[in-house]
Every structure is written in structure tokens, then in C-alpha cells.
Simulated scan of single mutants.
Amino acid sequence: RHYEVYFETSDSLATNLLDIDNLLSLCKKQYELVELFQLHATCHYTLPEMVAYFSNKSDCRQLTASDIPIFIDRIQRCHSLYDTGLMRFAGLKRYRAAPIDLFQYDTCFRFNFSFLTLEYLLDKTFLSTNETRYTAMWFLKPTKPIISANGSEIHTSNTAHDLFIEHFYQNSKFDDGRTKISALNFMDIRIPSAMKQIRADMFFVILAISLIVGVTVIYLRSITVALMTNICVGLSFACAYFSYKIIFGIDLFPYINLMATFILIG
């Protein structure tokens, strides 16, 4: 699990992130995010960092416009191996086992950087256009728990949710006119965050269910018929969940589907 932050350009007419001003903008945000996430001791993979690496620079703040063609040439030279699936095979194998000796000495495979760049940091139009409209920043979570000054553990689902609410929700802080955040995924917290919000709104859920049952009893003038109606509606969601999870194998059951309750009862 890790922190993923996706970026695009702020200007809808100039969508290429492989521009020196955009790269320097992303570089600045990379350092800001490292501070914000408190991930100074773990790896992070970003587009400006890779451009700097391929130009033998240790800091993306040293980037110049001449570094971009070097990066493009390097990635384009390796893309034929990427298309064959060989780079992906080697990259995934490295995640599961020791590196393949043969690949350690080929620049296209060194440290998996070309694989990571093509797989995650550039969009699919790059190979034909030498441009990318979107990019991702990956910040890896520490393997060992980290305790903050107040004694609580950080880098958990709860702290990631609080971080999102405090710094990213309806906040344009990371839009500097050059690049902006287009999407986020913090440690796969979508479901935990949704459930946390549902628990916070549970009073309203109970109130809504009570009102629905009450209205159907009054409208139908029969407690038995009203209860059977609501039970049938409830069972329909069980069938829907079974179809999602078992038949179609979809892990995420959108809880907004529960809004169909009002339509069914109506």
C-alpha cells in the first residue's frame, strides 16, 4: 500500500507535462508531498525524478530543458522491449523474487526505472507523441509502523483519511497554475473512508429507514404489507451484492446504489 497522487496540467490548452516549467512545478510538489506524508526514509517515484535520473542528476530541482530530450530518447529506445512484455515480466519478477542477473546490466532494465516510468508515470499516448497528459507520483509506505510525537501510529487508513480531508478535500493548494491534482488514492482507503462516513451519518440512515417504514404503513394501511414490501426491497440489495461480488467478481459495491431504495418503494 502506498500514496498515489495523480497530476495533470492546469492549462487545458497546453496538456503536455514534459515541459520544463511543468516538471519544475511537479518537482516542487514532490518535495511538499514528502514533507506532508512524512515519508523521508522511503522510496518515491515521480516523473521529474526519473527525468533527473536519466540525466545523471540527483535532484529534480536541477532540471533544465535539455534534459527532456535525453529522457524521451532513453524511454523510446526501451519501448520495443516494453511492447514485447519482456520489461513487464522482468519488472514484476523483481517484485516477487531476486533480480534476474541478465537484466541488471541492460540500461532498459536497470533498477526497473524504465519499466516503472512506462507503466505508471507516462500515459499511453507517450510512445506515439513524446508527450504525456497525466502522471502519477508514488510514495511508498514504510514497512514498519511509525509512531508520531503524540504516541499514535501514522500511515494507517484513519490517518490517511484525515490527511485527505485536511489537505486535499476541496483545497486548491496544489494548483499553482502550471499543474494540479487530478486524482488521489491513499493506501486504498476508498472503502474504509466510505464506511467511516456512513457510520458518521448513521443517525440519518436510521431516521430515513424509520420514515420509509412509517410512510409505507400509513400509505398501505397494513403493517404486514408494509413490512413485506420493505423486506422485499432489502432482499433485492442482497441479490445485487451477490451479483456484484460472486457472479461478476466486482470487489467494489457502490453504496450509492442504496439510493435505489426510494425509487423501489415509490
Rank of each mutant, 00 (worst) to 15 (best):
S222G: 05
A97K: 12
Q197R: 13
I20P: 04
I68Q: 08
K29Q: 15
L13D: 08
N16S: 04
I75N: 04
Y6R: 15
D101I: 05
F186Y: 10
R88N: 11
R61G: 02
L227W: 00
T216Y: 13
S58D: 15
D176V: 01
I72Q: 11
R1F: 13
R178Q: 14
M202F: 09
F7H: 04
L33Q: 04
I70T: 07
D251Q: 14
S222H: 06
F71D: 10
I146F: 01
C60G: 00
Q197W: 13
L252K: 15
A65Q: 02
K93D: 14
E119A: 03
R74G: 08
R88W: 12
T64G: 06
V215G: 07
P254Y: 06
I256W: 12
L127A: 10
F204A: 08
E153V: 01
S10F: 02
T129G: 06
L33I: 03
S55A: 09
F115N: 01
R61P: 14
L140E: 14
Y3G: 03
I181S: 08
V5E: 07
A97Y: 14
I72E: 10
V5A: 09
S152Q: 10
T64Y: 06
L163S: 05
G249V: 05
I20H: 08
V215C: 15
F174L: 06
T143I: 14
Y134P: 03
S80F: 01
Y6M: 11
A41K: 08
L47P: 00
P145F: 02
T129Y: 10
S210A: 15
G151H: 01
D162A: 09
F174S: 04
Q38H: 06
L211C: 12
D175L: 01
S12N: 09
I209K: 05
L235F: 04
G85T: 02
S193T: 11
S128D: 14
L102H: 07
C60N: 02
L47H: 04
Q76E: 11
L116M: 13
F113S: 13
C43G: 08
Y255W: 11
I206L: 13
I165Y: 11
S12W: 05
Y219F: 06
M50N: 13
C232R: 10
K57G: 03
V5T: 09
F113C: 10
